[in-house]
Design a protein around this nucleic acid. Structure first.
Lengths: 363, 363
DNA sequence: TTGTATGCGTTATCAA
DNA sequence: TTGATAACGCATACAA
């Protein structure tokens, strides 16, 4: 390895570790000087499809290596108007879903040679702050896994920053969107439960401002109505574990009895509901009560739960979002487009299900 | 105020959906022109502690607002040598731990007016690629929640990029570190289990290259030896759910019987172990077998598990890491420092525990 | 307090 | 293929 001057105390004894006093950065001029070429020649050597002779390329690369030269992305982006950064806006409320989404997005964005500038939104109020920074940092585009208001979406367009919404809708706006068909997913779930004889349904929803929750609700209602079943009892939760238990209690209180099936707008709530039913209310699930969730987060697959749920093809959705965004950035895609994925039904063992009938697929 | 040329469609009325063809960006010159001041005056207005008169400040801000002007961070960082970006390196293997760590880091870094450039490492091989980008993007510093080789750590110092390791050690290097005392945590756990009468221990470890796993192992061994207990049986897992079950089976196979206690190097493995014990082997936990984990991830707290585990004060650790990094960036902290936090013991209900004795604290 | 002039490190244009 | 030169958008030293 490079023996610089004095190998700074490698033993914990003497952390001399004096930070090098802002050593002047190595620039393309330094490399040019050492290689005996012009600065623009150096620049060209670091641009993929440039026109450089083998000889100069070799000389430049050798000099660059010996000086530890790395092009400065800030300077580059100033002139190319490309930062190779993509903003990812994500709200913490996604919770257990968060790592899967984020690492998938990060990977897919990296495939296109770009990196993720992360905006992790703890509260709704953070959106304004985050966006102010998004504009400053000159990102090439943004992917939002958080709810944005119409005004915010308009601002993206006005500022010419490509935007893709992942699992969110733009209420009054045309926007590029990648999502999973929640309506269809909820319809499928209801169909399969109804076919197995469930009649009294209850729903534990997410916060009403979440469009994912709204669509799941709409799909369930639609299908229940079509099947002539009684209207479901609806309570609202916060997508968290505790909401599952309190939701179930509330349902039983309002209904005066245990419903046939509880559909929860997230797996975590479904698990909370399940634990409450089994451990606190001593109910047999799925004997006395069927419980289903959405998202197929990792714990839903654990032996203690084996939850009936619907999986979103997140890796594919992330790839689609990244592709769609890059297409916009490259100007290949101008008109707003939406890509809709289908959820995969996971039978699990927390709901009584009838064997699959052909008409359910058509449902 | 004089509407000079044509303010680019500032009204939401006509979104005409056609992406504006790379409209020339609004710069500080445009603002200066409209406000009737010099460009440097505009610049000063956007610098916190600058010397500007009330009057010009107002004029400039008005002009800026009407033009939708936002300073260009790339240009700024070129001259200030501050990008206000912090690289966060994190490996996906942290899995359930990942969201907590990442959102805590993101928040804490944001407190210092900086943003997170995310490098989510799916494989060990990604490190080199990630680092190459870290150098390019001119980040102010980096926080690594992934294992870095000595060579990599040296490179940070050589390039003058401040680095803080979170829950990782630098084997042969002096480095700024924030971590949780895994040795002490493991010792405490063994002490409490031993005091309750457990004699035959087994460990399900993480990958041997993980230093966190190593420390947990060392602490457990130390304390077992001190207490004169038999050496534990050790098997290795991958930190995932499946490893818990296969680990337990392997332990029972090698031991010829069920051990008194299984200590797992992560909660997810502990949960896998627990589920296997209860649902597949029909063992009574903690009656016949005690199971404990590390990390206190959210599911460990669910009713089905109520796991005996140790919580790392992650929010505080993230804050410490951010503080330490920023101190380095600002040149306030030059000598390598390590901050060590203590884990909090969560009693849970998957292990038989004796009441807390004073000497355990000293252990 | 304000304006002028210069430089940050790169890419892009154009002539050689 | 190569080199001189002009941007890119901002911050800062210095003079006014």
């Amino acid at each position: 390895m490079a023996k610089t001057t004095t190998p700074p105390g490698a033993d914990t004894a003497s952390p001399s570790a004096t930070a090098l006093p802002a050593a002047r950065r190595v620039t393309s001029y330094d490399v040019a000087l050492l290689a005996g070429v012009s600065q623009s020649a150096v620049s060209r050597c670091f641009k993929p499809g440039a026109s450089v002779s083998k000889a100069t390329y070799a000389r430049v690369m050798k000099a660059a290596a010996s000086l530890d030269y790395i092009p400065n992305a800030a300077a580059r982006s100033l002139i190319t108007r490309r930062s190779n950064m993509v903003a990812v806006l994500i709200s913490n409320t996604s919770n257990l879903h968060y790592p899967e989404v984020l690492s998938a997005l990060s990977q897919q964005i990296a495939r296109h040679g770009k990196r993720v500038l992360l905006f992790s939104l703890a509260q709704e109020a953070d959106v304004a702050h985050a966006l102010a920074d998004v504009w400053q940092y000159q990102v090439d585009g943004a992917i939002s896994v958080a709810s944005l208001s119409d005004e915010h979406i308009v601002e993206f367009r006005r500022r010419g920053v490509p935007l893709v919404l992942l699992n969110r809708r733009a209420p009054g706006q045309v926007a590029h969107t990648v999502s999973c068909d929640q309506v269809q997913a909820a319809r499928t779930l209801v169909s399969r439960l109804a076919a197995a004889g469930h009649r009294q349904f209850a729903l534990i929803e997410g916060p009403t401002d979440s469009c994912t929750a709204q669509e799941r609700r709409r799909g369930a209602w639609q299908r229940l109505t079509e099947l002539g079943l009684p209207a479901p009892l609806v309570v609202t939760g916060q997508y968290d574990y505790a909401s599952g238990g309190t939701g179930l209690r509330e349902i039983i209180r309002q209904l005066g009895r245990v419903p046939d099936a509880v559909i929860c707008a997230s797996d975590v709530m479904a698990i909370g509901c399940l634990d409450c039913a089994r451990h606190e209310l001593a109910l047999d699930v799925p004997g006395q009560l069927s419980v289903a969730g959405f998202d197929a987060v990792e714990p839903s697959n654990w032996l203690s739960y084996n939850l009936t749920t619907l999986r979103q093809p997140m890796q594919q959705m992330a790839a689609a979002a990244a592709d769609l965004l890059v297409a916009q950035i490259d100007g290949r895609e101008t008109e707003a487009r939406g890509r809709l994925f289908s959820a995969q039904f996971i039978e699990g063992a927390t709901a009584r299900l009838a064997p699959l009938q052909p008409d359910m697929l058509a449902a």
